[in-house]
Structure formats: structure tokens, C-alpha cells
Amino acid sequence: MKKFIFVLFCFSLISFGVSLVKSEDYKNYQEIVFDSDEAFLLKDFTEENYKDYYKDLSKKKFIGWKINVVHANENVEFVSETKLKISNNGYSSIKHNISLETKEETNYQISATGGIKLEVKGDVKKFKGKVDADIKASISYSKLTTNKEKYEFEIIVDPKTYVKILTKGTGEVNNGVGKYYFFWINTKSGGWETFTVKTEYYEIVKERI
């Protein structure tokens, strides 16, 4: 009997799978399109771009960061990753309870290059050191919120079918470069970027396996 239950349990694990995308990174989104033709992401900055943008920061400072905002409040549309995928390999329909939560780290994401580093405090990523406050001040950052209600949704998954939840949305990108001066000597420099999700649209899709 125990063997039978064990086999049944293994079978249920094989026939029914849920995969959840754990943490989102906008750099992995399927698509990010700027409204403006002139704007682009930090990962697309060329060496030439960096040289140009650093030129604006050539006036030396006694101590601290100097920030150059290259693209400010640029609107984007994006297609995100699949949020959730449930597959039913079995021979009868199953009822599944989907539970999703809106995460702070998805709404406001950041990235950096060179001498600008990131640090993670709890669930929140920030630029390491005083540059975080300097960047936030230069882009007039104010923390936004979203409905944090736990989202529960019951769905029927037919046999040999998978259900997935996809998101697309709109957001805002700020990026630029920064230089750190210590006794008028430039000791660090790098690029930074913030990505703020403004609206997320959810789509549910059921497909045959």
C-alpha cells in the first residue's frame, strides 16, 4: 500500500508542475521599447558614449559624486518574462490556486557599471554608498506604491495543457554616469540606471502541451 501511495505521489509530481519566476530583472525582459528614438538603455552605452557623458563631469570637485543624467524620465513599453507557468500532464482537469504578490523589487529596479556598485538590503536593491542619494536627488525620485494585496486566483487547467501568466507594461527609465572625486582626484566612475514600472498588464494564456 505504502509503495502504491509513493508511486501515486511521484506520478502527481510528474504530471503537474508549477514554475514561478522568482526575481525579476528588467535586463532580462523580452522587449523594452522607448517612446523616444533618442533614448537607450545603460547596457547599450558604448565606450564613445561614456567618454562623451564623462566630459560633462570634468569640472573637479573636492570630495563626493558628480552625476550626469543622460536620459531623464524616458517612457518605455516592455514585455516581461512569464510570471507563472502551470502544466497539467495528467488525464483529468485540475483546479489550481494561483497566488501572486506585487514585489517592491519589481516596481523599482536599478543597474550599474564600472565604479558604481549595487547593494541589496532585504528585498530592496540600492546603489552602494552616498551615490544612491545623489542619483535619487538628481532624478527627483519619490517612492511609489502599488496595491500590495495578495492576489489569489483559482483556475481550471485542462489535461495536457499549460497555463501561463505573461505581463507587459509601461515604465520610466533614468540613466547616466557618475564620477567620484577625492581631493579633486577622480577615483571612481561608472554608469547607473533606474527602471520604474508604472503599469503592468496581465495576460493569461492556456495552451496545449
Binding site: L100, T102, N107, S142, L144, T145, T146, N147, Y151, F153, E154, I155, T196, V197, K198, T199, E200, Y201, Y202, I204
Partner: peptide, 30 residues
Amino acid sequence: RFPLFIEYSYNGKTYRLNIDDYLFLNETVN
């Protein structure tokens, strides 16, 4: 977010498909 109720007829009988309260969109606000 809201549920959907789809009332339909098949073979002369009436049925209702219940769709749970689906999150259509979410906004980040000030």
C-alpha cells in the same frame, strides 16, 4: 480586478462559466 460570469447556451440548455477575479492590470502610484 473582477470576476467574469459568462452565461451561454449549448444544446438548448443554459450554463454559466465562472472566471475568478482576474487581475487585469496593476498601477504604481504616488
